[in-house]
Simulated scan of single mutants.
Amino acid sequence: MQIETHHIGTKKIAEIISEAILISNVEDALQLMADLYYQETDAIIIGEKNIIPDFFDLKTGIAGEILQKFSNYRMQLFIIGDFDKYPGKSIRDFIYESNKGKLVNFLAAVELAKEKLG
């Protein structure tokens, strides 16, 4: 895993670069968030490929549990990927509603996350 740091205005953003699944459960998400929080990171950019596929099956409850932690700690999260491959109205509605807010966004490219932060 590599972390590329971006500074946009007064915000410090950690872009996670990896080919591996880094978040398989709530504990993985908390550990990543804690590590970056103590480095004074304001936001995390991570690839959809770095999160267990069950996250995108809302019936598992994993997405809700993980995103609740990000909400509790007020850490912005940008998940980058192609979300059209996940079927179902529920996940599409979930992504749509998340993208209306500022805390968790599902975007197609890192550049879009940087624009949203700028």
Rank of each mutant, 00 (worst) to 15 (best):
Q2N: 04
Q2Y: 01
I3G: 11
I3T: 03
E4R: 00
T5D: 03
T5Q: 02
H6V: 01
I8H: 00
I8Q: 05
G9N: 10
I13M: 02
I16K: 00
I17D: 03
E19F: 09
E19C: 05
A20C: 09
A20Q: 13
L22R: 10
I23T: 08
S24M: 15
S24E: 14
E27Y: 00
D28Y: 05
A29Y: 04
A34T: 12
L36T: 04
Y38F: 14
Q39N: 13
T41I: 15
T41E: 10
D42T: 06
D42Q: 10
D42F: 05
D42C: 03
A43H: 01
A43W: 02
I44F: 04
I46N: 04
I46K: 10
G47I: 09
G47K: 14
E48Y: 11
K49H: 14
N50M: 07
I51W: 02
P53I: 12
D54W: 12
D54Y: 12
D54E: 13
F55K: 06
F55H: 03
F56R: 00
F56W: 14
L58V: 11
K59H: 10
K59C: 11
T60D: 14
I62E: 09
A63P: 09
A63F: 08
E65T: 15
I66W: 15
L67E: 07
K69P: 00
N72A: 09
R74L: 06
R74Y: 07
L77P: 02
L77H: 06
G81M: 10
D82F: 12
D82Q: 13
F83T: 08
F83K: 10
D84R: 01
D84M: 13
K85L: 15
Y86A: 11
Y86E: 13
P87T: 12
G88E: 07
G88N: 12
K89S: 15
K89L: 13
I91V: 15
I95N: 00
I95H: 06
E97Y: 10
E97H: 09
N99G: 02
G101S: 07
V104R: 01
N105R: 05
E111C: 03
E115F: 03
E115P: 06
E115G: 01
K116W: 03
L117V: 10
